[in-house]
């Protein structure tokens, strides 16, 4: 069994080093000698619906709309979820999954509607270090956020973390990102998996089951340093 990761539209959704998340997952799987492949899906490529994990990154407004158009075709992501896939989405990729999101300040765009969230323009852009206490049994989460939207839960959903410092979803929710049975999302880039090795392994283990531990002290050191600086 080869674990298949789909890296979606990096030219469009990859403004904040998001390809790092894909490289890190691949590296952590390789360290454990778990057979895997990464399919990088560019503009014009057809998107498989039977992969295990789909990654969506952050992007600028025009790119976010272009990515939405591509992902809307044939309900690709919905079908992948029906097939049991998981999604990890960051920032613009997170917003796209919801019912609507703003571009160019205030123009509202209808999203994929895969999860019950909506994003509205924030008064001020949220830029800076973001620290949250995860709802999952893993270490404190650290990242850097840079987004102009605030995300509100329409459905009864659980955030990925409760914000300790920074903004996250905003709207007075005190949450960042979200967790459902198949979707994990966050406003943290950094990229998130570079700074949060436990998050990377947790996202993998939700699909792969328990994972052996690996020795990679630099990621733990980086995590601890960033958490200590933000606290």
């Amino acid at each position: 069994m080869t674990f298949t990761i789909v890296h979606l539209l990096p030219e469009l959704l990859g403004t904040y080093g998001d390809r790092g998340n894909v490289e890190i997952l691949s590296w952590r799987l390789a360290q454990r000698e778990i057979a895997h492949e990464v399919l990088t899906i560019g503009v014009g490529d057809s998107i498989p619906t039977t992969a295990d994990l789909y990654l969506l990154g952050g992007g600028e407004d025009d790119a976010q709309i272009a990515a939405l158009e591509i992902l809307s075709e044939k309900d690709t992501l919905k079908n992948a979820l029906v097939n049991g896939a998981h999604i990890f989405a960051v920032c613009a990729g997170f917003q796209i999954l919801g019912t609507q999101f703003p571009v160019s300040g205030s123009r509202m765009i209808t999203g994929l509607g895969i999860i019950g969230i909506e994003t509205v323009p924030a008064k001020r852009r949220s830029v800076g270090e973001l620290l949250s206490r995860p709802t999952a049994p893993i270490s404190m989460l650290t990242g850097f956020e840079n987004h102009g939207g605030q995300t509100r839960f329409i459905d009864d959903l659980e955030p990925l973390g409760h914000v300790v410092s920074g903004i996250g979803n905003g709207q007075g929710s005190n949450g960042d990102g979200l967790v459902t049975s198949q979707v994990v999302a966050t406003y943290m880039h950094g990229p998130a998996f570079a700074r949060n090795p436990e998050l990377a392994d947790w996202v993998l283990s939700r699909k792969l089951g328990a994972l052996s531990s690996i020795t990679a002290p630099v990621f733990d050191q980086l995590h601890d340093e960033r958490v200590a600086k933000a606290e």
Partner: peptide, 9 residues
């Protein structure tokens, strides 16, 4: 720039 995410680009 306070954000180092570019390292991954």
């Amino acid at each position: 720039g306070k954000d180092t995410s570019w390292l991954w680009d």
